[in-house]
Amino acid sequence: MCHLCPQLKDRINELEEDVRQLREAAGITLPEFGLTDSEWQIIGPLFKRHRAGQEPAISHDQIHTLYKPRQADADDTDPHTIKVLVSRARKKLKPYGWEIQPIYGKGYTLVKTPGFEDNARNKNAA
């Protein structure tokens, strides 16, 4: 790890808190999927990559780096915790036509279920 990494992590945490406070003050909310903050820490970057048209896969190492447990002293996150959060988010996103798919040896990717939007529109039109 480089000598600047701890300082950069602290600065990132400060900026993320600033963004959270600004969103709260402005009334900006995340999409209504019912995800917890912990689930969004992991799934949010998948959505960002999907919207930007980038390679949507995020590695297990990247997820481990992105996830910040609520306990300030919890530097090391149990891989099982991340798997549980992904599993819970997967269940919450499925009704909206989103799937979190594992990519063996790489991590996870987010895909929109084919034809889901058409099915949703047909139900609303009926």
Rank of each mutant, 00 (worst) to 15 (best):
Q54M: 15
P56I: 01
D37G: 04
Q21R: 12
L35Y: 03
A25L: 09
P45W: 02
K48W: 14
P31R: 04
I58L: 15
D18T: 11
L46M: 12
E24W: 06
P31S: 02
I43T: 12
D18M: 13
G53W: 12
F47K: 03
L22W: 13
T29N: 11
G34S: 09
W40R: 01
F33H: 04
H60P: 04
W40L: 02
E17V: 10
D18R: 14
G53H: 09
R51Q: 12
H60D: 14
R49E: 08
A26L: 15
R49P: 03
H50F: 15
F47I: 06
L30Y: 14
R49Y: 06
R49H: 12
L15D: 10
L35E: 01
G34I: 05
P56R: 08
N13W: 11
L22K: 10
A57L: 08
L15S: 07
G53Y: 08
E17A: 07
A25F: 08
Q54R: 13
S59C: 08
I43N: 04
G27R: 05
Q54I: 08
F33A: 02
T36G: 08
Q21F: 04
P31I: 08
G27Q: 06
E17T: 06
S38R: 11
E32K: 14
K48P: 00
I12Q: 09
T36A: 13
